[in-house]
């Protein structure tokens, strides 16, 4: 394994990097990457095309026939925005709710998980591995089996029928949804972030400790800045999972229309026509826009070489 000479340059990190980009892109590599990318996109592209086709065309002919017989309609998109009954809130409210649920439900678990990952990666204490691997194993617990006990806690403050908390009356607000997402996001977040955090060179950490930095300052000055790319990549996923979640929103939202996220509305439209796919196609695209923007935005934080010259293999 490649062992590198560490360059403990204190807390200062080199930012200016020489570009070695061009030398690396072999045409074959690019070709391969592009072919895979196109292959990956065909099904989604089919959906995009379908979303602009009239209902009868969708169920009778393949989407590719669109190119020989272009028959464009915006009806599916109109249905997504306008369909509904006299008590259905406008779509904009569902979109707002999705943001109001997703942003805190990404910030909370990430923060708590970075803390825990830091503790598990850098604090030396008995039972550390046991705790870490228990958390790791918790990932496999099926969400569906956690809903009832958690709901009992939120709705009545009970665990196993025993009153542990006063009735908080938080059902029907965002709070149970945030807490539930935070809990469900934690095991994977801790596992992934732990992997990144423990790769931070020991020399850096020890140098800071020698300089007199306490555990809190160490986190603030070194660990956190260095783990930004990892946090950014996990933030993307947590955002996505929460944004696209239906089950948690449905269960912990308590059926309150005023706080329901976009997915609840989309599911309603889907159900409306058991066999009609047309509204779904447009709905899927509308709900995709925000996650893609998040991906593009956060990708900028995948900065090369924050740990340059000091990473170990």
């Amino acid at each position: 394994m490649t062992q590198l000479a560490p360059k403990p340059s204190g807390l200062k990190l080199t930012k200016g990097r020489r570009k070695v980009k061009d030398a690396f892109s072999s045409p074959w590599a690019s070709f391969f990457a592009i072919v895979i990318a196109l292959l990956w996109t065909i099904p989604t592209f089919g959906l995009l095309v379908t979303s602009f086709r009239p209902k009868v065309d969708i169920v009778t002919t393949g989407w590719w026939t669109f190119f020989s017989n272009p028959n464009v309609t915006l009806e599916n998109y109109q249905s997504v925005f306008l369909q509904g009954n006299n008590v259905t809130p406008p779509l904009s409210q569902y979109i707002f709710n999705s943001f109001a649920i997703t942003i805190p439900a990404a910030v909370f678990p990430l923060t708590i998980a970075v803390f825990a990952a830091y503790a598990l990666a850098w604090f030396e204490f008995k039972g550390r591995d046991f705790i870490f691997f228990s958390i790791f194993a918790l990932q496999v617990i099926p969400l569906q089996l956690t809903l009832i006990p958690l709901l009992q806690l939120f709705a009545r403050g009970q665990i196993a029928g025993v009153q542990v908390l006063p009735d908080m009356e938080i059902t029907g607000s965002y709070i149970p949804i945030w807490i539930a997402h935070t809990i469900f996001g934690l095991p994977l977040a801790i596992f992934l972030l732990h992997n990144f955090l423990r790769q931070i060179p020991r020399e850096l950490v020890e140098a800071a400790r020698v300089d007199g930095a306490g555990w809190f300052m160490l986190f603030r000055k070194i660990i956190f800045p260095l783990s930004i790319p990892a946090i950014a990549s996990f933030a993307i996923f947590q955002f996505l999972w929460v944004w696209n979640d239906l089950l948690v929103g449905l269960t912990f939202g308590g059926g309150v229309r005023e706080i329901a996220p976009l997915t609840v509305r989309l599911a309603e439209m889907v159900g409306t026509r058991g066999s009609g796919w047309e509204v779904l196609t447009a709905g899927a695209f509308i709900s995709m826009i925000v996650p893609l923007i998040v991906f593009f935005t956060l990708q900028r934080y995948f900065i090369r070489g924050l740990l340059a010259g000091s990473v170990k293999g």
């Binding site: 008590v87 569906q144 809903l147 009832i148 958690l150 709901l151 009992q152 939120f154 709705a155 009545r156 009970q158 059902t171 239906l246 089950l247 449905l250 269960t251 308590g254 059926g255 229309r257 609840v264 599911a267 309603e268 889907v270 159900g271």
Partner: peptide, 20 residues
């Protein structure tokens, strides 16, 4: 308040036992 959901079958069990 009419509250329709295609996940009714699962959700009614969860909500009944969960206390909502």
């Amino acid at each position: 308040n009419w509250n329709g959901s295609q996940d009714f079958e699962t959700q009614i069990q969860v909500r009944a036992e969960g206390g909502t």
